[in-house]
Simulated assay, not measured.
Amino acid sequence: MSAPRAIALAAAVFALSACATVAPEDASDAPMTYSCGAGKRFVASYALDGRIVRVTAGGQTTILRQVKTKKGDPIFAAGGVTLSTKGAMADLDGAPAGPYRNCRTG
């Protein structure tokens, strides 16, 4: 392979690798801090598609996936941790130092 052709091939591979997509759980909106009753707090970063949330509470981070509900308000769950939201309000169960009740963003 000639040197110019090798350089062109290397440049093409580099350009394609820069176009790689980010997994949904890695692409997220800005983290939201929830302030709860009893002075507790947790942080949630929602995936852009709205189906996954990364929650950090009590020094532990957990990836939760949205589960279907009859009421229509989002509920996210995994590994015994459950986050239920309604507008700016949320409750978090199963996370360390929980439960987190009457939580509000902002």
Rank of each mutant, 00 (worst) to 15 (best):
L83K: 02
T69H: 10
Y46Q: 10
A15E: 00
K40S: 10
L16M: 14
A30L: 13
K40L: 14
A3F: 07
F14D: 05
R104F: 14
T33C: 07
K86L: 14
D26M: 12
D29Y: 12
P31R: 08
Q66K: 09
F76I: 03
V43A: 08
G37V: 13
L9N: 04
G106N: 13
L92F: 02
V22K: 01
T33H: 06
G59R: 02
D26C: 06
D93I: 08
T69W: 09
L16T: 12
A88V: 13
K71V: 13
R5F: 04
Y100M: 01
A77G: 07
S17V: 09
T61M: 05
G80R: 10
G106S: 14
Y34G: 08
T61G: 10
R65A: 12
P96E: 05
G50Y: 08
C19S: 12
A78W: 00
L9H: 05
A78P: 01
P4D: 07
G98L: 11
G37D: 04
I7Q: 02
F76L: 11
A27E: 08
V13C: 08
P99N: 03
A57Y: 00
Y34M: 09
M1Y: 01
G106M: 07
Q66W: 03
R104G: 09
M1D: 05
V22E: 03
T82G: 03
K70Y: 11
F42T: 03
D29V: 15
A3I: 10
A27G: 06
V67Y: 04
R5N: 07
T21N: 07
T105F: 03
V67C: 11
A38H: 10
K70I: 15
G39S: 14
A30D: 05
G94L: 11
V67P: 01
V13I: 14
T69V: 15
G87M: 15
D29F: 07
G59W: 02
A6M: 09
D26T: 07
V43G: 08
V55P: 00
P74C: 11
C19G: 06
K68A: 15
S2G: 15
V55M: 03
A20M: 09
A78G: 09
G94H: 05
S35Y: 07
P96C: 03
V81H: 03
A97P: 01
Y100N: 03
S28N: 00
D49I: 14
S17D: 11
G59L: 12
T82S: 14
D73M: 12
P4H: 06
I63D: 01
Q60D: 11
A88N: 09
R54V: 05
V13N: 03
G58R: 00
L48Y: 03
G80V: 13
K68G: 15
A3R: 15
A38P: 02
L92G: 03
R101L: 13
V55S: 03
Q60G: 01
A78V: 05
F14T: 07
R51I: 12
T105C: 11
M32I: 13
A77M: 15
I7W: 01
G72P: 14
L83N: 00
G87T: 08
G87E: 04
G39N: 13
S45Q: 06
T61I: 10
V43C: 08
V81A: 12
N102V: 15
A44K: 01
G94S: 11
T21Y: 01
G80Q: 10
